[in-house]
Design a protein around this nucleic acid. Sequence first.
DNA 1: CTAAGATTCAAACGATCGTTTGAATCCCGG
DNA 2: CCGGGATTCAAACGATCGTTTGAATCTTAG
Lengths: 229, 229
Amino acid sequence: MNLHLRTLKPQHETRTRILDAAEELFMQHGFEGTSMRLLTSKAGVNLAAVNYHFGSKDALIEAVFRRRLDPMNAERIAELDRLEKSAAGTAPAPERIIRAFLRASLAMIEDARSGGRNFIRLLGRAYTEPSKPIRALIGQLYGPAMERYKTAFQRALPELPHEELIWRMHFMFGTLAYTLAATDTVQLIAGCKPEDRYDAKLLEERLTAFLEAGLLVPAKARSTVKKAA
Amino acid sequence: MNLHLRTLKPQHETRTRILDAAEELFMQHGFEGTSMRLLTSKAGVNLAAVNYHFGSKDALIEAVFRRRLDPMNAERIAELDRLEKSAAGTAPAPERIIRAFLRASLAMIEDARSGGRNFIRLLGRAYTEPSKPIRALIGQLYGPAMERYKTAFQRALPELPHEELIWRMHFMFGTLAYTLAATDTVQLIAGCKPEDRYDAKLLEERLTAFLEAGLLVPAKARSTVKKAA
DNA sequence: CTAAGATTCAAACGATCGTTTGAATCCCGG
DNA sequence: CCGGGATTCAAACGATCGTTTGAATCTTAG
C-alpha cells in the first residue's frame, strides 16, 4: 500500500525523469522521431521503464501533455474568473481578456530551467500534428477553457457576429501557437538576427497589441463595397 | 538521349504519381509516419521506385516542397512586382501587399482536385517541423520572397521601427500558416460546427482585415499610459 | 528477519523501417 | 529485327522500432 505520502519523492522519480526527457526529446525530434531507447537512455532509466510506468509510448505522450496542460488551463480559467469578479458585473475589456489568456503561456516560456519552454514549443507543434488521437487529446484538454473565453469575448463584444468571433479567435490562437512554436522562424524574416532571447514581458506587449487590433477591427467594413470577384 | 520533348508524359509519370501520393500521405501521417511501402503502394509503383527516381526518402521530401513552393514564391514575387509597378513610384498600401502575399496560398487552397489543398496544409506543418533539414529547406525556399515583402512593408510603413516590423510579420506569417494548416481546430473554438467548407474569398477578407489591423496598430501606444495590471 | 509487492534490469521478441541488389522488362534508335 | 540504356520488379539486406519476458533487486509491512 502506498496510500501514505511518506517517501514520495523517489516513488515517482522515475516517472518524472521520463516525462522530462520525453518533453525535451519530443520537442527536438517529434513523437515518431524519438525512440524509446534514446528516451530512456537520456532519462537514465531502463528501456522497459516506460512500458512499466505508462503502459505504452502513446500513453506516455498523453501523460506529457496532461501534466502541463491540465494546470495550465485551470490557471487560465482562474485568471478569467478573477478578472470577471474584479469587473463586478460589467464585461472586462477585450485587452484584459487577451492578456489573461496569454499569461499562462508566457509564464511557462519564462521558466527555462524546468522544461516549461520545451513544453510550450512542443504544444505549438501538437496543434498541427498529423496524429488524430493527439489532436483529439489537445482539443479535449483545451475545450473547457476555450468555451469560457469564447463567452467572455462574446460578452465584451456583443456587436460582433458569432461566426466572425470564431474566426478571429482562431486567428488569435494561431498567432500565439505559431509564435511560441516556431522560435527560429523569426530569423527567417529578420534575415539572420536570432533575436537575443525571449523577453516575455515585451513579447506580451507586442502580442497583445497585435491581437487586440485584429480582434477589434470593425466587422464587414467592406460588406457594402463587396467583392467584384 | 531524352533531349527531345516527345513522349514526355509517360516519361515522368512515375515521378508525378509518387509526388502526389507523398503529398497526401505526408499531410495525413507526417514524414516519419509515412512508410515507403504505404507510399509506393498508394502511388501504384514499385517499392524501389522512390530510391530510383529521387535517391532517398529525404530527397523525396525536398522534391515535394520544391515542386509547389518554387512556383508559389515566384508568383508571390511577381504579384508584388506588378503591384509596385502599378503604384508607379509610390509605396503600395499595406492592405494590397498583404493581399498579394495571401493570394498564392489561398489560390492553392481553392484547387482541391489537384493536391494543392493537401500541400498547403502540409506546408503549415513544416514550419514547426522538428527536423532541422526540413526547416532549413523551407527557410531557403521562402527567403527571397520574405526579403522582398519585408522591404515593401518597410517602404509602406517608414515610421514603424524595424524590429517591430519583424515581429509583426512573424505574427502575420504565423496566423496564415496556422489558419491554413489547422483546419479542424476551428471547431475546437466553435464547439462542434465544422464550418461547411473553406470559402477562399471570404477567408481572404477575414484574414486581410485581421492582419492589416495588427500590422498597422500604433507602436508602443501604451508606453506612457502603461499597464495598471 | 522475513516474505511479498514494487521496481529495475538485461535480453530477446516479432514487426517494420529505408535501402540495395540483380535479373526481368520496357522503350526506342539504328 | 536487334541491341542498349532506362525503368520496373520481386526479394532480400541490416538496422531499428515498440513491446514483452522472467529473473534480479529494492522497498516495506508484519
